[in-house]
Design a protein around this nucleic acid. Structure first.
Length: 592
RNA sequence: GCGCCCGUAGCUCAGCUGGAUAGAGCGUCUGGCUUCGAACCAGAAGGCCGGGGGUUCGAACCCCUCCGGGCGCGCCA
C-alpha cells in the first residue's frame, strides 16, 4: 500500500496545514461506488481538528489535478478516487519485494517471548490445548513475520498433586504395564491412570460418606485427606519433595512417557519451542525475591506468619505470596519464572497465551512485579483466549465429553483423505498422505484461528470440519490453483517484463488492491495480537483471486501482454497466500 | 455481593477502535463444468445489531439502566 497520490496528498496537506503531518491510509471503496479507494475526510478532519466538508473539498480539488487520478468525487466527506489503471497496478503490486515485506520498520522491532501450551503431565491434550497451541504458534509466527525476534517457550507442569494421582493409580493398578507393552501413546497411557485414580477416589469418597453420615455436606476438597487414596497422594507428593528415590524414579518414567506423547502431538501440529522449562526445575523459584521484597517493605508479614501484598489501591484486594508455613503458592512460582525468563532470555516483552479464566491472576502477577520495581513489568502481557465449548456446553473430562487432540487430528486427516479421493474420482492421487495431513491440519487450525482469540467459541464435533466456504482448504485451494496454472505456463513464464497498462477489469483491480493490503493486515494482526485478522484477510485474498480467475482468462488470455500481466498478478497472489498461511503456521500444497 | 467479558441473519462468526444502504461462511432456493482444477463462481431470500434511555452532524461500537448468559473473586493450580 504505497500510493503516489497518497504521498503527494499528505505532502500537500502538511504544507497547507502548517506542517502538521497526519498518517493517511486510504480505504477500499465499497464496490457499488464505482471507485477504487476512498479518503475518509471525516476521520482526517478529526485528526487535523478541522471541519470535514471543506477538507473533503480541498482534497477533491487537489486530487482532481493529480496525474494518477482518473476521477474523484465527494459524497458527504468521503472522497472517492478512481485511479488510472497503470497507476493503480504500479502502486499496489508493481514492486513484488515491497509487497511481500510486511515487517515493521527496524525501530519498531522487538524481542518477544511467547509462552504457550503449558500442559500438565497427567493426561493427554484436548481441543482446549489445541486452541492454545494453535494460537500460541500462530502468534509467534505472526510476530516473527512482522519482523520481531520471537522466542516461543513452553513451561511443562510436571509436578504436583495431580501428577501424583496418576502415579499412585499406576502403582496400584498398573501391574507393570507400559506404553510399549500396551501399544499405547504415552500420554494416553498415563491419562488412563489419572482417570482410574479419580474413579477410585470417588468410590472411597462415597463409602466414607455412608460410613460417617455427619460428613454428608462436606465437599470432596474438604474431605480430601480423609479419603485414603487422597491421603496417599498427599504423602506421595511429600516423598517426591523429599527426593525419595523410588518415587522419583517412577515419576521420571511416567513423565517421560507423557512428554514423548506430547512431542508426537506437537510434531503433528508443527509446534516448536526454543526453550522448554519444567516446573519441577522452577517451582522453587520466587521465594528469594519474596524475601527481598519483604525486606524492602513491598510485602508484609501477617500475624499468622503468611507473607502478603496489599493491592487495594489497584482494586485487586490482597494476595498471599508465601504461606504461613513458608511454602510457595502458585503466584510465587510465577513471579520466579517470570524473573528467570527475563534474565535468561532478555526479551523486550513477555506474552503468556493462557485462558481467560486467569485474567485476574495475571493482573495480580503484573501488579506485584510493578510493585517490586521491575521496569519491564509494564511490557508483560496476558494474551487471554476464550474457551472452546461443545453444543452440550463445556468440555468435562469427568463426563467424558472432552475432544481428544490426537483423535481429532486422526479424524481430520481421515476426512481430508476422503475429500481428496472423492474429488479425484477415478484418478489416483499422488502423495495422498501428505495432502490429507496438510489439508486436515490446515482446516483445523484455520477454523480455530479465524475467530478472534478472545471469543468463547463453539465447536460441533458432529458437524465435523468443513473444507468449503470460509475455510483453510478454501485458501489452500486458491494457492494450489495458481501453482497449477504457473506450472502449465512454464518455467520462464514470469521472465518477460510486465506492462501493467493492459489491465483494468474490475476483478483485476479488486485483486490488486486487496493484495496491496498485506502489510497492513500482517502488522495489524501483530499489533493487536490477533491472528484472526490475518485469517480474515487471507479469505479476502482467496475470494478476490477466485473471482478474478473466474472472470479473467489467464493462460488463454487474448494477447501475450495480457497473459503476462495476469500471470504476474496471480503470482503475487500466490506469494501472499503462502506467506500469509505460513504466518499462521498453515501449510500449502502445489496440488490438492 | 463485588469485578471482568459476552448478547449482531435459522447456525457459526466478522465488523479495521464513532462513518456510506450492518458483512461473510454454513444451511435453504436458483443458475454456471466440450476455455486455465466446481474444495470454485454468479444470484435470491434471510436483521428493531437483547430491551429502553442518553451523548452528536452520525452509534452495533461511547455513557446510564434493565433483561439474559459466561468467567473470576483460595494459604488450589
Amino acid at each position: 500500500m504505497n500510493f503516489r497520490f497518497v504521498r503527494d496528498l499528505s505532502a500537500h496537506l502538511a504544507h497547507s496545514r502548517n506542517g502538521s503531518v497526519v498518517e493517511l491510509v486510504p480505504e477500499l471503496c465499497p464496490p457499488e461506488m464505482k471507485a477504487d479507494l476512498t479518503v475518509n475526510a471525516f476521520k482526517l478532519a478529526k485528526a487535523l481538528k478541522s471541519a470535514p466538508m471543506p477538507l473533503a473539498e480541498e482534497i477533491r480539488a487537489f486530487l482532481a489535478g493529480h496525474a494518477d487520478v482518473a476521477g474523484v468525487e465527494c459524497i458527504k466527506a468521503f472522497v472517492n478516487v478512481r485511479l488510472k489503471p497503470e497507476a493503480l497496478f504500479r502502486d499496489s503490486v508493481g514492486d513484488a519485494a515491497a509487497l511481500l515485506d510486511g515487517r515493521f520498520p527496524e525501530a519498531k522491532r522487538r524481542r518477544v517471548l511467547v509462552e504457550f501450551s503449558a500442559p500438565n503431565t497427567n493426561k493427554p491434550q484436548h481441543l482446549g490445548h489445541v486452541r492454545n497451541n494453535t494460537i500460541g504458534m500462530a502468534t509467534a509466527a505472526l510476530l516473527r513475520a512482522a519482523g520481531h525476534d520471537v522466542v516461543p517457550v513452553n513451561l511443562i507442569n510436571d509436578r504436583g498433586i495431580h501428577i501424583c494421582k496418576s502415579m499412585l493409580a499406576y502403582q496400584r493398578f498398573g501391574n507393570g504395564a507400559t506404553p510399549a507393552s500396551t501399544g499405547m501413546k504415552g500420554d494416553h497411557f498415563v491419562g488412563d491412570y489419572y482417570v482410574k485414580y479419580d474413579a477410585e477416589f470417588r468410590r472411597q469418597f462415597a463409602e466414607l460418606k455412608i460410613a460417617r453420615p455427619e460428613l454428608a455436606d462436606k465437599s470432596s476438597d474438604e474431605l480430601f485427606l480423609d479419603v485414603e487414596i487422597g491421603r496417599a497422594a498427599q504423602e506421595m507428593l511429600l516423598k517426591w519433595e523429599q527426593g525419595d528415590a523410588e518415587i522419583r524414579k517412577l515419576w521420571e518414567t511416567m513423565n517421560g512417557w507423557v512428554i514423548a506423547g506430547f512431542n508426537d502431538t506437537y510434531a503433528r501440529m508443527g509446534v516448536k519451542f526454543d526453550r522448554v522449562y519444567l516446573e519441577s526445575q522452577t517451582y522453587m523459584l520466587g521465594k528469594d525475591i519474596i524475601q527481598d521484597g519483604l525486606a524492602r517493605g513491598v510485602f508484609t508479614k501477617r500475624e499468622d506468619g503468611a507473607v502478603v501484598i496489599d493491592l487495594e489501591a489497584e482494586k485487586l484486594g490482597s494476595k498471599v505470596v508465601l504461606r504461613s508455613d513458608g511454602t510457595s503458592v502458585y503466584i510465587t512460582q510465577d513471579i520466579g519464572t517470570t524473573l528467570m525468563k527475563q534474565n535468561e532470555l532478555k526479551p523486550d516483552r513477555q506474552i503468556w497465551v493462557v485462558g481467560d479464566e486467569q485474567i485476574f491472576h495475571f493482573k495480580v502477577l503484573f501488579a506485584i512485579l510493578q510493585k517490586l520495581g521491575f521496569a519491564w513489568a509494564k511490557d508483560c502481557h496476558h494474551m487471554a483466549y476464550g474457551m472452546v465449548n461443545l453444543p452440550s456446553g463445556k468440555m468435562k473430562s469427568r463426563e467424558g465429553t472432552v475432544v481428544d487432540a490426537d483423535d481429532l487430528f486422526d479424524e481430520m486427516e481421515k476426512l481430508a483423505r476422503a475429500a481428496c479421493a472423492e474429488r479425484a474420482g477415478s484418478d489416483s492421487v499422488e502423495n495422498l498422505d501428505e495432502r490429507a495431513k496438510v489439508i486436515g491440519m490446515g482446516a483445523l487450525k484455520f477454523m480455530l484461528l479465524k475467530v478472534n482469540p478472545k471469543t468463547t467459541m463453539m465447536f460441533d464435533p458432529n458437524a465435523s470440519i468443513q473444507f468449503e466456504g470460509d475455510t483453510g482448504p478454501y485458501v489452500q485451494y486458491a494457492y494450489a490453483r495458481i501453482a497449477s496454472m504457473l506450472r502449465k505456463a512454464g518455467a520462464d513464464a514470469l521472465a518477460a517484463p510486465v506492462d501493467w497498462t493492459v489491465l483494468g477489469a474490475d476483478e483485476e483491480k479488486a485483486l490488486a488492491l486487496c493484495l496491496a493490503g498485506y502489510g497492513n493486515a500482517l502488522r495489524g494482526a501483530a499489533d493487536e495480537l490477533d491472528p484472526s485478522r490475518l485469517a480474515g484477510y487471507l479469505l479476502d485474498v482467496a475470494r478476490a483471486f477466485s473471482r478474478f480467475y473466474q472472470a479473467c482468462p489467464v493462460l488463454v488470455a487474448p494477447t501475450p501482454e495480457l497473459r503476462r500481466a495476469r500471470l504476474e498478478l496471480s503470482a503475487r497472489a500466490r506469494d501472499i497466500l503462502k506467506a500469509g498461511l505460513a504466518a499462521l503456521t498453515i501449510g500449502t500444497l502445489e496440488s490438492m
